[in-house]
Structure formats: structure tokens, C-alpha cells
Amino acid sequence: MTIDIFLQQLVNGLTLGAFYGLIALGYTMVYGIIGMINFAHGDIYMIGAFVALIGFVVLSTIGVVSVPLAILIVLVMAMFFTACYGWAVERIAYRPLRGSPRLAPLISAIGMSIVLQNYVQIAQGARTKSLQPIVNGQYSIDVGNGAHVTVSLLQIIIIVLTVALMAGFTWVIRSTPLGRAQRATEQDATMAALLGVNVNRTISITFVIGASLAAVAGMMATLYYGVIDFYIGFIAGIKAFTAAVLGGIGSLPGAMLGGLAIGLIESFWPVFFDLAYRDVAVFGVLILVLIFRPTGLLGRPEIEKV
């Protein structure tokens, strides 16, 4: 592998890792706070992508030509509407099941995922939707020996936006009252409630934040791939969840690291091996990591007590 291919795949892998990291944050937060696998989260991401696509079409119909303005408006819109979906899913399908057997919310989540997929399929049609590229610029960087690495403007936007969101998000969790309430609920919901934390509201906000981060990933996917359909949430969701587990579920830096790892594996795999087996590689690495580090890369070992 020459240096230019290496750098090129590194850039592509970072971009991919940004998607998975953003979605994985939603999984890991929800898991941390109520201990359930939110299976519908991948479909929340898909809804984010659809809302963003519809937003772009609406803006072009009413004649907004400035690209940065359009992206900003669509970003806010997608985050808002998708957050509504995240909130509603929690309110309808998970909140009534709090305190019931552990598998009940999981089944409810799988059901919700099927509902969301088919709802979008019926409402928007089963065919793939494609969008003309909006952000076009790209830079070619000379890496010596006449070799070039291409970095598109969109990739830069995606990586910068992701880093900014993650930094802001880490700040929220670390040093705001909301973040404190969240960490308290995560450690001991009953105790947090006794100390005056509104547990239900904190959990709702967790879902809202998770959904809006997924919406950002969805908007970026709409721009980056330009092709979406109602089924994209499933595989993206599974891989993002894999990323969360890989990083150590419940750990926020772990989710970002896991997303990055999955993104890099995916972009480097085809350089050496058959592209068709890329997903096998992702899950294979997951199994290997878990065998040698059963709590994931950054997860804390859980102390088991009688």
C-alpha cells in the first residue's frame, strides 16, 4: 500500500467513522441510562436522513440558493423533527415498560423499528431517493512522488461538524446541571429521584439528544451519499451499535473511538480483501475484541457482587 492510498483511505475512514460515532453516541447514552438496546435508533437516523432530504427539496423549491444557509436551516430542522420522533418513541414504547422484565423493552424496540421502517416506506415510497450533490468543492493535496490525496469540502465539513458536536456534547455531560442529572440517573435512578432529579424528564432528554445527533448523521449521509431509502437505518444502526459495544457500551469517548475504529476497518478492508466480506470483517473484529477485552476498549469492568 502506497502512502497516497493509505492517506486517502484514512480520510474516507475518518468520514465514515464520524457517522458511526454520532449514531453510536445515541446507543451508548440510552444504554447507560436505562440499560436497554434502543433498536429503533438506527431508524431514527434514517428518519433524520429523510427529513433532511425533504428539507433540501423544500428549500430549493422556495428558492434558497445559499448553500451554507440551506445546510444550517436543514440541520436545525432535521434535528428538531427527528428529536420529536426520538421523544415520541420513548414516550410510547419504552416509558410504560420501565421496571418490567429486561427483554420487554427490547422487543418493543424491535417492534418500533419495524413500525418506523414501514411507516417511512408507505409514506415516502420504497424506491431509493437521490439528491444532486450540493457541496461540490474538493482539494487535492500533493503528498510527494506525484501522488495526490483528494479531500472533498464535504468531508471537511462532516469531520469538523462531528468534532464540534462531540466536544459540545462532552461539555454538556461534564459540566451542566443537565449532564449531572444524567450521570446521576445513570448511576442510580432511584437515588437520583430521591435527590430531586426528574428521572423521566432526564431520560426523555437523553432520547432527544441521541435522536438529534442521529439526525445530524442522517443529514450528512444525505449529502455525502446522495442516495437514501427506508432501509438504511438497519445496517447503519447495527454497525453503530457494534461501534458502541466495541468502545465499551455506556462510555461516551468509547462510542466515538468505536465509531472511528469501525469506519477505519470499513475503509481499509477493501484495499486488501474482498469488498463483499466487509461486514464480516466488522463483526469479526467485534468478536475478537470482546474475547480479549470483554468490556470493550474503554469500558470499565463491572464489579459483580452477590
Binding site: A104, S108, I114, Q117
Partner: peptide, 9 residues
């Protein structure tokens, strides 16, 4: 999917 959710609830 809806039935799955409703029966669980």
C-alpha cells in the same frame, strides 16, 4: 411491528 409493541405494552 405495531402488534409487537402493543402486546408488549
Amino acid at each position: 411491528g405495531g402488534a409487537m409493541v402493543l402486546i408488549m405494552l
